[in-house]
Each structure stands twice: as C-alpha cells, then as structure tokens.
Amino acid sequence: MKLSSLLTPERIFIDIKEKDKNVLLNFLVNEIGKIGGIDDIDALKKEVMDREALGNTGIGRGIGFPHAKSSHVDSLQVLLAMPAKPLEYGSLDGVPVNIILFIVAPVDGDNNEYLHTMARISRLLGKNNVREQILKAKTPEEVIDIVANNEA
C-alpha cells in the first residue's frame, strides 16, 4: 500500500505547538485513539515510550521516526507531525526534529506491510527536496499531494 493512501488528512498535523518530545508522542497516540482501532491507549503509550527508551528514533536530518509494534492496535497507522518550532529530540546528529513520522503496526499483522511502509518512509524522507516541500506545506492535503507525487 502506498504511503499517500495511509496518510489521510486526520493523520497529518502541521504547526504542532508541543515543545516536548514525549508530550508530542503522547499527543500522536491520543490522535490514533480518536481515529479508532486501539483497545488500550495507555498501554500503547507505554510501548512507544519503551521503544524510545531502548534507543532514540531521531534518525538525523531533522526526522523523527518513532515506531512500534503493538498488540493494542488493529491496523497499521501512520501519522505525520510537524512541530511549529524544531523539537529537541536527542537525534543521532543532534539536529532538532521538524518532521515526525509515527508508525504503529499490530503485532500479529502483516510484517511485510510494516517493513514496506518503513522502507517507503525512509526512501521518501531521505530526499532533501521532498523534506523541503513537506516543510513548506500549509495543509494536510498539500502534504498528501507531495507524498503522492514523490512516491515510486
């Protein structure tokens, strides 16, 4: 499945005011809760935080890539968030994060789909011009168009 079809407008957040990484991750889990398909939001929050404790998901170049497999979601969820100001994230290269792609997949779901989505995200955000275009987007619909136009 293409990334642009996983990213619907209610999964994209522009000019997020949260200034703390953990607060922002909690916000994103809450948003998944609003979309539906979670049986225990607090448990999912703990899984996401546990993953962060295991090793930071700031992969450099201003990208945060939090990801987790969870027994508390029933389908693959991808959310994109852009903080109003670059967020201190403890990334590998020390660069604050300005794009966060959050991916959660069911533990017993299709592992290939999960890996396929991670590969697509990595490929897409590895391109400087795509990151620049996404950062200039004013609406979720613009972000979806940019992703769709740049997907292989």
Binding site: R51, L54, G55, N56, T57, I59, L92, A119, G126
Partner: peptide, 12 residues
C-alpha cells in the same frame, strides 16, 4: 537487541 535489553537505533 530489545529482547536482550541493549539500546539500538536503526537507520538506512
């Protein structure tokens, strides 16, 4: 790494 409680970051 997670199962053995070692810290890890993954990148491509």
């Amino acid at each position: 790494a997670k199962n053995q409680e070692a810290r890890i970051v993954i990148i491509q």
